[in-house]
Design a protein around this nucleic acid. Structure first.
Lengths: 183, 183
DNA sequence: CCTTTTTTTGATCGTCGACTCAAGAATAGT
DNA sequence: ACTATTCTTGAGTCGACGATCAAAAAAAGG
């Protein structure tokens, strides 16, 4: 693809797909809905994406990789990681919805999404566990991993609730969680 | 419906629907899949259920009402309520999956499911808040509600994680949650 | 300007989804 | 045993979905 029009169309398609996935879920994200929202015909869609799944996967990958900040230093604190997740959910609600509804939910029923979300979750758990062990070296690797798992699960629960009830104080409760169970 | 065969067929349909919803989600729960699993033809299905949504809604209602124990006394403790939820998830994994994937996560994209899950969630929050205030009468209604919301959100996160990783110690972490943030 | 490549369009295809119906088989009630 | 009701079946309708394609239109490159 070299034409400017093609790049613009691709962007319109991805924007429409993001919005649809976030608002109507996998079921509501049809090729027709995407094309209507993007103001194009189906043929143009298939000129740029080999299949519907391709466009969806592209957005899902984007959402998953936006969940956590890209690794910077070797000494991340748990607070930084938690704050980053809170910011992600609050500042990128569209991608956050895609992450939670399509990736996490889809991981429970769709086999391909399952391996994808498990891989992501393992990396994420290891990262959190490392930051926990940074602060509390006396913890065994297993203990740190278990705490990271519980912390992440609770955070996901908070995030989920936050999507249902925007007045939920995600940041405050996340901080409180860290205070009571100081990682 | 008076015929025994009809009752038996209805049970087979509901069993198949439960299993499909839990394993393949809304998307994978087609009339054909239900009928295949139940060993009947589509006509029999529509002799007993006016629509596919009807059968699904029936199972979703069942799952939602199985989440919490039916009210007994006026003095439930938070521990009892939390334990009941843990037991529900561990002893009724099929319904628990339906509850979390179809009802809770579906509530984020499907408008009808949304009002259903919000109603349920409000009742549940009030119940938890009441049990919290039972133990700590010095808390304001708002504070108790906020704590109940956070507790429930974290529990749902744990439950969700438990579905992805059956080795996750849901009961243990739930208890620890209560200890650190003693409701 | 002309050629090549990319993009868009509109029509269309096959498949699979939910759902219907007439006719026959089974079952209750009497 | 008879009859009315319920249940099951198989064939079928209809629409939506993902996907394809030839041809026209637009853009890029020289």
């Amino acid at each position: 693809m070299r034409n400017r029009a093609g790049l613009a169309t691709e962007a319109k398609i991805l924007t429409a797909t993001r919005r649809l996935l976030s608002e109507r879920g996998l079921e509501g994200t049809t090729v027709k809905a995407i094309c209507d929202a993007a103001g194009i015909r189906a043929g143009s869609f298939y000129n740029l994406f080999p299949s519907k799944e391709d466009a969806i996967l592209s957005v899902v990958r984007e959402a998953i990789s936006a969940v956590d900040p890209h690794p910077e230093g070797d000494h991340e604190t748990v607070e930084e990681l938690v704050d980053a997740y809170v910011r992600f959910v609050e500042e990128e609600p569209v991608l956050a919805r895609v992450y939670l509804t399509v990736a996490v939910l889809g991981g429970l029923t769709d086999p391909e999404m399952n391996i994808r979300i498990l891989r992501h979750h393992q990396r994420r758990t290891e990262r959190f566990a490392a930051s926990i062990r940074n602060r509390r070296p006396e913890l065994s690797a297993e203990e740190a991993t278990e705490r990271a798992e519980a912390l992440l699960a609770a955070l996901n629960g908070y995030a989920l609730h936050r999507l249902l009830d925007p007045s939920f104080d995600f940041a405050g409760h996340a901080r409180r969680l860290l205070r009571y169970q100081p990682a």
